[in-house]
């Protein structure tokens, strides 16, 4: 772990010094007690703020749209897929970014630690698959993000520099959450989601954190007319989420940021997984896996299924 951090800092220093990038987006902490946060390094002297540890969860790809010029970015395997997506959608140019790709063995979900890890975080050690939390041994699988359990692309598909040891892809087996929902009938499903959407406070964190929610005008914000009301009435909240998810269908790479950002802890990745499955079955497409791909809903293939058009 320490190796990766040192290597990252050295590379960042070099890139800034040689003016290969004018900003480097990475993870940083002011002091070691802090959880890592997104930081923007513009000068060599600030490079020592850069960290890498098993809490670096944010998908920094979102910030590529905020910066100008040559941008360096630290990205995990999952994050790289969303960067590929943004390049496919011509939001950024490949030649304008330098990807410092990290082969990521998985990230720890502080919500799964006792007391959000406030007391124990600092004394945490990780050896292979065992994590020591406050003197207690825990399996990594118990404390990592759900998405890491089934990560197919822990090593960046696209990168200019790669850090860390090769990590084996995990077996795709998210079947459980999807098949459980699929086996429900419409009424049961509605009941399941209503019980959760009822808690939604419409803070829009899911939208703002999403690398693919970059529209300058969003239908959810329109006021004349207000297509979706600000009311937290279930009918409006359902619509809010349905619209957002339909707009990222075929683009979403399951970086899991919507679910992580949600303060009310709504299980939004369940929807992500269902959409992912549909896109795979209908169009045999997996978003963000190749720079050469054209986004699936931007291409037309004579063999595309049409049986859903009625």
């Amino acid at each position: 772990m320490i190796n990766i951090q040192d290597e990252l800092r050295a590379k960042a220093k070099e890139l800034l010094k040689k003016k290969k990038v004018n900003v480097l987006i990475g993870y940083g902490s002011l002091n070691e007690n802090d959880l890592p946060k997104p930081i923007f390094i513009r000068e060599e002297k600030d490079v020592d703020m850069l960290v890498w540890n098993p809490f670096c969860i944010n998908n920094l790809g979102k910030y590529l749209l905020k910066e100008r010029g040559k941008i360096g970015i630290v990205a995990k395997g999952c994050d790289v897929r969303s960067i590929i997506g943004l390049i496919q959608e011509h939001k950024i140019k490949r030649e304008n970014i330098v990807i410092l790709g990290i082969r990521c063995p998985g990230i720890i979900d502080i919500r799964k630690l006792p007391d959000k890890g406030n007391a124990t975080r600092l004394h945490m050690e990780r050896k292979n698959n065992v994590v020591m939390v406050g003197g207690k041994k825990m399996q990594f699988e118990e404390v990592c993000y759900d998405k890491c359990l089934t990560c197919k692309y822990p090593s960046p598909i696209e990168a200019d520099f790669r850090f860390g040891e090769e990590v084996k892809a995990r077996k795709e087996n998210e079947g459980d959450s999807v098949s459980k929902l699929e086996s429900m009938n419409i009424e049961e499903r509605l009941k399941y989601w209503d019980a959760r959407f009822e808690k939604c406070i419409r803070c829009t964190a899911c939208r703002e954190i999403c690398p693919f929610c970059y529209c300058e005008r969003c239908i959810l914000d329109e006021t004349i007319p207000a297509w979706v009301s600000r009311s937290t009435d279930l009918s409006d909240t359902r619509l809010f989420h349905m619209i957002r998810f339909l707009h990222v269908a075929g683009r979403c790479v399951d970086c899991g940021e919507c679910e992580r950002a949600c303060p009310m802890e709504l299980p939004l990745r369940k929807i992500v997984k269902m959409i992912e499955k549909d896109i795979k079955e209908m169009f045999d497409f997996e978003p963000g896996t190749s720079l050469e791909d054209i986004p699936v809903l931007a291409q037309y293939n004579i063999e595309d299924r049409e049986d859903f058009i009625r």
């Binding site: 829009t204 006021t223 009301s229 009311s231």
Partner: peptide, 21 residues
């Protein structure tokens, strides 16, 4: 990222809007 989490979960934030639905 300018989401509303901090304001909506803040015990003192009290701004509101009035709209028609």
């Amino acid at each position: 990222i300018n989401c509303y989490t901090c304001t909506f979960l803040c015990p003192t934030c009290h701004c509101f809007d009035i709209t028609d639905v």
